[in-house]
């Protein structure tokens, strides 16, 4: 199974561009995976194309988590450096290039935030981000079907579950930190995270997939 642009697909992915002319192919239309391969071989124009294609997404993740433009820029730059160094280990069966890059950026941002401050996020930032995740018109317009379903599912969550989900899933806060922030018992925080994730999972996965109890 792979995950591409928010969609879980239970088959092998192929980079197939049917009907595309077989000669004089502009780099701007190159599939993400092929562009990554070109980046790895050192073509400067492809590298610039790669950065241009993904910089908005990568910086968006970094600024959402950190709230600090300078820190976000550092993280976004590190993300592209890591992509350049580690393109060898990219495996398209595990997700799209976009997902791979956003995961790198997210992990770097979480590490940076944890290193800089004990309090991961201000309350007003949390609510603003939750609103942005669920109500950004631009994102609604551009999103694929799976992303739209996921966004709608987040929007349908009870507010307290949505907050717990964003705190854990975006800001990387532990259940204990969520409990402290919301002034609720630890078990309640865990339940909110688990329940929210379970509801979202239902929007992506086929019914009963992975439902197993030993």
């Amino acid at each position: 199974m792979i995950f591409r642009d928010g969609r879980a697909i239970s088959c092998r992915r192929r980079t197939v561009y049917k009907g595309v002319p077989s000669f004089r192919f502009p780099v701007g239309r190159l599939p993400d995976e092929a562009l990554l391969a070109g980046l790895a071989t050192g073509d400067p124009e492809l590298a610039v194309t790669f950065v241009r294609r993904f910089q908005r997404t990568v910086f968006g993740v970094a600024i959402a988590v950190t709230g600090d433009p300078q820190l976000a820029e550092d993280i976004a730059q590190q993300t592209f450096e890591r992509a350049w160094r580690h393109a060898q280990i990219y495996d398209s069966r595990r997700g799209s290039v976009t997902t791979w890059l956003t995961t790198i950026a997210h992990n770097l941002a979480i590490d940076a935030v944890r290193a800089r401050r004990a309090e991961p996020v201000a309350p007003e930032d949390l609510d603003a981000l939750l609103d942005a995740v669920t109500e950004t018109p631009e994102q609604w317009a551009l999103a694929d079907e799976a992303s739209s379903r996921l966004r709608a599912a987040v929007a349908r969550l009870p507010r307290e579950q949505g907050r717990a989900l964003v705190m854990a899933g975006v800001y990387g806060m532990t259940a204990r930190q969520v409990a402290d922030r919301e002034q609720i018992p630890l078990g309640t925080a865990k339940t909110r995270i688990r329940t929210a994730m379970g509801k979202l999972r239902g929007t992506l996965a086929a019914p009963n997939r992975g439902d197993h109890v030993q």
Partner: peptide, 17 residues
């Protein structure tokens, strides 16, 4: 599957120039 959900959540974050 849960990891895919987490990845998808990050994918919902708005882009920023």
């Amino acid at each position: 599957h849960m990891t895919l959900v987490g990845d998808g959540l990050i994918g919902l974050l708005p882009g920023h120039e």
